[in-house]
Write a protein that binds this DNA or RNA. Sequence first.
DNA 1: GTTTAATTTCGTAATATTGCGAACAATAAT
DNA 2: ATTATTGTTCGCAATATTACGAAATTAAAC
Lengths: 106, 106
Amino acid sequence: MKKAFTKEQKQLARLAKAMGHPVRIAIIQMLLSENCCYHGDMSEVIPVAKSTLSQHLKELRDAGIIQGTITLPTIKYCINKETWALVQKLFGELFSLEVREELCEL
Amino acid sequence: MKKAFTKEQKQLARLAKAMGHPVRIAIIQMLLSENCCYHGDMSEVIPVAKSTLSQHLKELRDAGIIQGTITLPTIKYCINKETWALVQKLFGELFSLEVREELCEL
DNA sequence: GTTTAATTTCGTAATATTGCGAACAATAAT
DNA sequence: ATTATTGTTCGCAATATTACGAAATTAAAC
């Protein structure tokens, strides 16, 4: 029987997709290791035009993975802790499924 | 200084991207829980046309996450254990970076 | 009030993704 | 030989992604 996708499948796919680009991985790593930083900080390190960086920041924001606080003229970005906890939970659940040995030879 | 992306950033992005669709999450979950199965088995459960399912299987194959063995007239799919271990390692490294509390209020 | 700084939004182009049904393999069964 | 069975590939259309520079935004600094 065909079933619609579960909420968790959709969430996981959404979050994985948001992480599916080197620029966005770099942003996430930077925010995780430095906790908070600004567009400009990231722009100095990540090899992409500023406007492109903005687009990637927006996608991570839309996925809920990061959040920004306006402290004009800059914007401070950081990881959204709730969403990040969800990311860890959902991927953790997937990783907890053990790959059985027996049946999987090529 | 702008740096090119590291190999790991590119790998992680590639793998995340491959997981960034509900159909592909469903495939991965099914292969993890049943270890191996056939296109037909998945087609009965996953709400998408067979040709579309094939495309998603191909993408997961191209990313190295799954592999298929031909046992005509069927093809048996299963998780690629090496790649799956890499997925766990790379995401694990990302998750091991703790989100610091202090600086991240909205 | 004009300039400066930091970032986003707009416009645009190139490419990629997603989805479907129809047509195509490749073999087993009749 | 013909017909099922199981998947894949093809052709096509709609939409989304990625990228860049130029223009717009917003408020502080002069």
